[in-house]
Design a protein around this nucleic acid. Structure first.
Lengths: 330, 330
DNA sequence: CTGTTAGCGCGTTCAT
DNA sequence: ATGAACGCGCTAACAG
């Protein structure tokens, strides 16, 4: 439209006018025409030519979980600042779907992937990594996979929670856990047990129950625990959904928190402070985790993070103390 | 690798072997090689050639809001069934960001867009539509824009809620609203007022307060309402966040729901049933909204929905009755 | 300071 | 039943 060649237009629109010493008059003409005709370059053609699409894949087990959607927001905003768009992929907590999604993203030639992996088995992820697409793992980590990760220090979070419960005079503390075997869960359980050992109590096996991070698990296990002859005085719930289940169970059984049973939960939520008994929670710095993961990914994409310079990061969570734990010493 | 030309491989991999009468032996060889070498076609090159990328854009004001992340999940899953991936875009509730995102998506040559628009002004959306990229609007609608939408029937939802409150004997019912001027809000307020008119009460202006869907708005307005000499007996909150704010205010003031004040809220949440006083809510069929929107979009992409065949859809929400409204007639 | 050429990987048309 | 040639829109290399 301007009479100039595509090359010249391309150079101007990519801010290389100066480098190629395009005349100011030409530059202005081209920029004006681009604005007038509302021209936006075809990113598909660009991606093909550059072998760089300026897109990243974000794979999560469940985007409807507020925990992951908060992370999604940070990742999207941070990525866009750099001109990147993100493909949202929900693995439905299913490992074969996750595998399929990784292949799909490879076919779409994403420049990198942020993955919150589903399970324990990481074979397909390490396999996948050989294709050369940078991956950063968040939330959980895959031991010995050599893939860089950013997570919370779940061990520390658990210790803070349980040591606080102990400091309030509790000794019979139950732990309702999630999916056994994954790093996130075992780190939390280890923190729970070590806190007890520290004051000379051996963690009783019968007090560690549950096998799923969902609400139903919390409900069922709470009913069982509270139905025992000698019931624990406190419950440590390893996820936001588990504690919802616990609260439903206690309400149904006519028990009050913290009068009849104390409760501390992993994962701060918008409603945590607003419950009948404002809940003491372990808050993870999810925005920080997301931000760091994105930065690590872009470093790797830029080539600044070659093989061998793997950096793993664990962020310390903090305990938000409210009034869901009864003080037995008072 | 197989010795066959790219053309033949392409035909086999796109299931056109039969059409081109490729021999069974060749087909098998190619499929085997593709599997062995873990070959996935370059979707970028494909998109360039076909002028169809099999991607759609999903633009929301805030992906961290569980309401939108639930919708995102359905859209992602439904799209993937058809081989499509979605670009997640967060407009940060900012209209100029929304505008910029639409241009970005156009540059990425998405085949269609699902948009939960930020505000009242829809000029940029109608402008954008002239580029020929199909758009479906959800959550809110843009009156007179001629763009097809799928939303809840907010008027009906409000009537159900308020008529229920009335049926429990309440007459002094306050309404804490969100962003004034958008269809979603005004429809709900209209439903509230009409319900009162129906029983011969003129809606009092002083009982309709608030200007934002956030938690802070609910908190402030609740404190003001409950601090009045003659306080209302019930509050109708027009969003999940507003009702969180109301609950925080009542807790701080030492008031009990429903004994001291009754409450009904828009938007069912996972915790709604688990609050100290399980909350009566208006539940929108968000999964259904998302599913219908996706289907409409794919119809349009497939060309089955030419100009003029615009179809707007409103889904009736349902009232989930729990125990946050006191029965004054008992 | 600007234009011409070539090629990214694919699917399609034409040719055989 | 299969291959060769072409072009989608872009940018980097080369040419002047």
């Amino acid at each position: 439209m301007t009479g100039f060649s595509a090359s010249t237009v391309s150079r101007v629109l990519n801010d290389k006018g100066e480098q190629y010493r395009i005349s100011t008059r030409t530059t202005k003409k081209i920029l004006k025409a681009a604005a007038d005709y509302n021209y936006y370059p075809n990113r598909i053609a660009r991606g093909l030519r550059l072998e760089r699409t300026e897109t990243i894949g974000f794979v999560v087990p469940d985007i409807a979980n507020p925990y992951f959607s908060s992370i999604a927001k940070t990742i999207e905003v941070e990525s866009r600042k750099r001109g990147y768009s993100i493909f949202l992929c929900d693995s439905l907590d299913d490992i074969s779907t996750e595998k399929e999604l990784l292949n799909l993203l490879a076919g779409r030639r994403v420049d990198g992937i942020i993955l919150a992996p589903v399970g324990i088995d990481s074979g397909h992820v390490t396999d996948f990594r050989r294709r050369g697409i940078p991956i950063i793992i968040i939330d959980r980590y895959l031991p010995d996979s050599g893939i860089p990760y950013v997570t919370s220090d779940n061990y520390s979070g658990a210790r803070q929670a349980v040591e606080y419960i102990i400091s309030m005079g509790h000794r019979d503390i139950a732990c309702i856990q999630g999916l056994n075997g994954i790093s996130l869960n075992s780190d939390r359980v280890r923190g729970y047990m070590d806190s007890l050992v520290k004051i000379g109590i051996k963690a009783e096996k019968s007090l560690i129950v549950g096998d799923d991070f969902g609400e139903e698990c919390g409900y069922i296990q709470a009913r069982l625990l509270l139905g025992r002859k000698t019931r624990p005085t406190a419950i440590f719930a390893l996820s936001n959904l588990i504690s919802l289940g616990v609260m439903r169970a206690t309400a149904e059984m006519g028990l009050k928190i913290p009068d009849d049973i104390s409760l501390v939960s992993f994962d701060e939520q918008p409603y945590s402070a607003l419950l009948a008994s404002p809940m003491t929670t372990v808050e993870q710095s999810i925005n920080e985790i997301a931000r760091i993961a994105v930065n690590m990914l872009f470093d790797t994409i830029a080539g600044g993070n070659k093989e061998g310079r793997i950096k793993n990061i664990m962020l310390r969570p903090s305990l938000i103390i409210r009034s869901s734990v009864k003080n037995l010493l008072a």
